[in-house]
């Protein structure tokens, strides 16, 4: 019974971890560079959940001060993650520009084909 309660209380963390692990797996295991970058951004967005979820108070409301409300969720994770989202899309754009450049130089975006063209194993 207690185990089930713990599971429900931490369900958001488990999903967050699942997203993180899935992103990590895609980054390591997939050779296609666009897929890799999407995996990286899934990894990144899972961190948003990791930050925002502890800030939520059940019965609280969005942190916009109004006399009608007393309990607000924690605003600080929101500030941090706003920054993270914008920086995340900037790095994604830079990575994709590199992918376009690699595609131009090698004619492919598959990692193993690029290694083969470089004369590696």
């Amino acid at each position: 019974m207690k185990a089930i309660q713990t599971f429900i209380d931490h369900y958001n963390y488990f999903i967050t971890i699942f997203l993180m692990v899935a992103g990590l797996y895609v980054v390591i295991a997939r050779g296609n560079m666009v897929k890799k970058l999407i995996g990286l951004s899934i990894f990144q967005t899972s961190v948003y959940l990791l930050y925002i979820a502890p800030g939520k108070i059940i019965g609280g409301t969005a942190p916009i001060i109004d006399p009608a409300f007393k309990v607000y969720s924690n605003p600080l994770p929101h500030v941090l993650i706003l920054t993270a989202i914008v920086v995340g899309v900037a790095t994604l754009a830079l990575g994709l520009a590199l992918v376009v450049r690699i595609n131009e130089a090698y004619g492919t975006i598959e990692e193993d084909e690029i290694f083969r063209q470089d004369g590696g194993k």
């Binding site: 925002i52 607000y72 929101h78 706003l82 899309v89």
Partner: peptide, 24 residues
């Protein structure tokens, strides 16, 4: 939005779902 992070949700919907998808 469910987590009360309305500002972050707006940014994610416009930047994450909008700009990222267009760039991809």
């Amino acid at each position: 939005i469910v987590y009360d992070a309305v500002d972050v949700a707006m940014t994610e919907a416009s930047v994450g779902a909008g700009v990222s998808t267009v760039v991809l």
